[in-house]
């Protein structure tokens, strides 16, 4: 009945205000299964808020988020009823998120961080969770650091553990909120490599980033946000180098080009 390429994620007219300030002014787009979308824009353009509105870490003021066929209204989680809580937890389980500051739980080892979701969200046994967690740590190249605590890991290693933790609950859509911004330059590569391999696996990914190279080389689509709105959306070539670019996009990109020339 439905079209074969039903979107994995559909975002419809998301608005968000903090007090009198409207940070998101109606954002709509869709991500096809396996599609990688990079979201770029100056700081304050609303790109991180947009990402946080998708899994309702921030409650959007209005709009809709649809995961496959299931539609979540902006307003339905404003109340704290039991049923809406359960629906919210289900939504979050299906959407993984990686944060700029890693946010690994400092009192649990890398392995325990990854096991948390399988045990306490999916209800798996400890043994099952452990073998899955070890598999995922191997996937991000950190089998040998499974028993290390977050403070014993480098930033890049912590972010790779955080990616494994996100994958552990089998999410359908992966959200990356500036995953490399807090990293020393020499550690950025290892995290981007993991993300690239996830993209090649066919994961649906939304990546808020300042890594123009990642957007150019890995993303299927690039969104440029400006002042709470999508100003430009399209194929990376089109958005990053095309003729139809807006002035603000040009001046935004100019900063990175200068940086890249210098580097």
């Amino acid at each position: 009945m439905k079209a074969v390429t039903r979107p994995a994620l559909t975002v419809s007219d998301i608005r968000k205000s903090f007090g009198p300030i409207e940070v998101l002014k109606g954002v709509s787009f869709a991500a096809a299964p396996g599609e990688v979308i990079s979201i770029i824009g100056a700081s304050g353009s609303g790109k991180s808020t947009l990402l946080r509105c998708l899994n309702f870490l921030e409650n959007p003021t209005s709009g809709k988020v649809a995961l496959g066929d299931e539609v979540f209204e902006a307003t339905e989680f404003a109340s704290t009823g039991r049923r809406s809580r359960a629906r919210l937890m289900g939504l979050r389980r299906r959407m993984g998120m990686v944060f700029q500051s890693f946010n690994l739980w400092p009192h649990r080892s890398a392995l325990e961080n990854v096991m948390e979701g399988p045990i306490h969200v999916l209800g798996r046994s400890k043994a099952e969770a452990e073998s899955k967690a070890l598999e995922l740590l191997a996937r991000v190249g950190l089998s040998h650091r499974a028993h290390a605590y977050p403070t014993e890991l480098s930033g890049g290693q912590q972010q790779r553990v955080a990616i494994a933790r996100m994958l552990a609950t089998d999410p359908e859509v992966l959200l990356f909120d500036e995953p490399t911004s807090a990293l020393d330059p020499e550690l950025v590569g290892e995290v981007l490599a993991v993300m690239k391999s996830l993209a090649q696996e066919g994961r649906t990914m939304l990546v808020v980033t300042h890594e123009i190279a990642f957007a150019r080389d890995v993303a299927d689509k690039v969104i440029f946000m400006n002042q709470g709105q999508i100003e430009q959306i399209g194929h990376p070539d089109e958005v990053l180098t095309g003729e139809a670019r807006s002035d603000s996009l040009r001046s935004f990109l100019a900063r990175f080009e200068r940086d890249e020339i210098r580097a």
Binding site: R92, G96, P106, H107, E116, H120
Partner: peptide, 29 residues
């Protein structure tokens, strides 16, 4: 840090689990 609690919420932990697995242990420490 608020991010540690958000990380729990983001993987779909319930409010009770966030309290008992993240907030209380860290608070005690």
């Amino acid at each position: 840090p608020g991010g540690l609690i958000e990380a729990g919420e983001a993987i779909g932990l319930s409010g009770t689990k966030v309290r008992t697995r993240i907030v209380l242990p860290l608070m005690f420490i």
